[in-house]
Design a protein around this nucleic acid. Structure first.
Lengths: 344, 344
DNA sequence: ACGTGTCACTGACACGTGTCACCTCCCCGT
DNA sequence: ACGGGGAGGTGACACGTGTCAGTGACACGT
């Protein structure tokens, strides 16, 4: 029942996608020549008239090379894979990500975001490895185990870089010192005379990766000063904030670092509605320096986070790809400082 | 100088990435058997002991199949490509996108986001076509021309779907009726007796795609009512808002739809600082129903946008892939309604 | 006439996988 | 003794590309 697999030599139109062989046929040259022309191979000399003919044939057929076949033959690709689970992120991160992507493209890499929603860590790593990326940059949204790194490296990845809060076995780690954020916030509150400091810890899942280190940083700042640090679980809802505000007096806090400008705004409103004066009775500090925070009264004090430059990270990826055996640097890539406004 | 290309038969470790041939060798079977076992091919019977041996060998070598080789051989892939230029987006969109991705994975597609920052429309389409995706879903962030659609289809894409504000030649278009957002906002303002209505139009590039239709929608609502609609350019900065507020009285507006809750909050604060009472003198309506809008006083009225379900869109993609010749449906996928609070 | 070189191009192989047709045992019924 | 047939497995091809070695054709110097 199966057709003989002979390829009818002249199949000019049809619905088949054109290959370089089709281009060669149309231009009246060999497939090799087509490859040389379209890739501008410098080591081989092809006459100008022939080049022209090949290019015209390719144009006419709408030929587009097949990336899979190409990287199969080449034995490697220039694909940088970025796992993404897409927690909603702020403009800060978004800006950084754009820069990063742009810089990588400039270095002639192909950036691919590959979502792996709802997969196990190792299972996800295997899925990424199937694509044979030359590098994997995990931006901390997705968990990556030492086992996963091993799978990726064995599949040919020359660089596995994690950009997150904790180190992963075998990978280049760029630690985002989230702790610093909490630390400078707490230091600021201490300097202005506060002694019992609350730290808001969002209950939303997926944020633990950031909130944990920030809390720890605040604790570090308080160490040895005699001040106390109290974690405050909070959901991003008005009722949750109202509930927290209702028992505020019994907590006896005189300062609070609220993880985030959004949580800070939520909490500050709830405090004010409960009759707690800000900053008189309690100082409030957020983070991210959102424009909206400046619209409240009192204006929200905040921690401004200077993110690593996308270009810088792209160059680091490039270096890691070219020298995979280089020592595993692990730098801190955040700089944080307090912007004092009126709420503290 | 080149080594003879013989492959040393026993190369147990080394740094080479293992192929199915290596697995076959280790398990003492043929490559075909390996393929059958690992793919659970039902039409072929392999004894249980052999299956075991193959699986163990694959495990031991850390074998991961090569996606490129696989889809090359298969002649098609199940990759859905989503071009992304990553303008910072709100939680609404983010949630939708997660659902969409999850639903596609459930339908056994591989979702890949491919950024094409700073490429021409046609050039970008060519780059996407190289990956030979089975479907392309443009979420409106990226321009896609009729020419681009042609390139993609010729390269084997069975479905090209645009999800945006305008239709594209040759593609399945799902029009997001951004106009409705402006329309219901304006209708609401008109119902509450406002006659001179401002519509904030962000000056930030990349938002024009949304802001234009919203303005048009507001105009549509005002048509025939005798009310006037005035576009108000605004940058997302305090100074810009202050400038607009300063000349508010001479504009003589009694209502404003501010594109967005964020712009609305910015403008409302500036109006209040300039001594304009809200909603007494001017009513303000935003959009997106952000939690933060509820924290202001007066609480911000807003347009709640019910986005299409991710699952629904995923099923539509699946249908389009299975029946590429189906008629080009083009539905509206937004539902908008006003949530009245205190600012209007 | 002959070796040497250069130019422009082509033939053939390899990359890793899925699958189809075929092959070899071995058992069973007559 | 022989045909039939199923169970379990293998050999070989094709997918589309990049690249190396080679091949005529022609020019040049002796």
């Amino acid at each position: 029942m199966s057709q003989p697999t002979e390829r009818s030599p002249g199949r000019p139109s049809g619905r088949a996608v054109p290959t370089s062989a089709d281009v060669a046929r149309l231009a009246g040259v060999s497939r090799a020549t087509v490859s040389y022309v379209l890739n501008n191979t410098s080591a081989v000399r092809i006459s100008e008239p022939t080049r022209q003919r090949v290019r015209e044939a390719a144009e006419e057929l709408g030929y587009v090379p097949h990336a899979a076949a190409r990287s199969l033959r080449a034995g490697h690709s220039r694909m940088v894979l970025i796992p993404s689970s897409h927690v909603p992120v702020g403009p800060l991160y978004s800006q950084f990500f754009n820069d990063f992507q742009w810089a990588l493209r400039r270095l002639d890499y192909t950036v691919v975001q590959y979502g792996s929603v709802g997969l196990e860590a190792e299972e996800a790593a295997r899925a990424w490895a199937e694509l044979r990326p030359v590098a994997v940059v995990s931006l901390g949204e997705v968990e990556l185990t030492g086992q996963g790194v091993e799978i990726l490296k064995r599949s040919g990845a020359r660089a596995v870089i994690t950009l997150g809060t904790r180190r992963v076995e075998g990978a280049q780690a760029l630690v985002l010192e989230q702790g610093r954020v909490g630390e400078v916030a707490a230091e600021h509150l201490l300097e202005t005379g506060r002694r019992r400091i609350g730290v808001v810890v969002p209950e939303e899942p997926g944020l633990a990766m950031f909130s944990g280190p920030r809390l720890d940083g605040a604790r570090r700042a308080a160490e040895g000063t005699g001040a106390t640090v109290v974690p405050l679980p909070l959901r991003y809802e008005e009722e949750s904030a109202a509930g927290l505000a209702a028992r505020w007096r019994e907590l006896g806090l005189d300062g609070v670092f609220a993880y985030n400008d959004e949580y800070a705004m939520l909490l500050m409103r709830a405090l004010q509605d409960a009759g707690i004066s800000v900053p008189g009775e309690t100082a409030v500090v957020g983070a991210d320096d959102l424009l909206l925070g400046r619209l409240l009264r009192p204006r929200l004090s905040t921690v401004r986070i200077d993110m690593v430059l996308g270009r810088e990270l792209a160059e680091l990826v490039d270096r890691a790809v070219r020298e995979p055996d280089a020592p595993s640097v692990s730098r801190s890539l955040l700089d944080s400082r307090v912007v004092r406004r009126e709420s503290s």
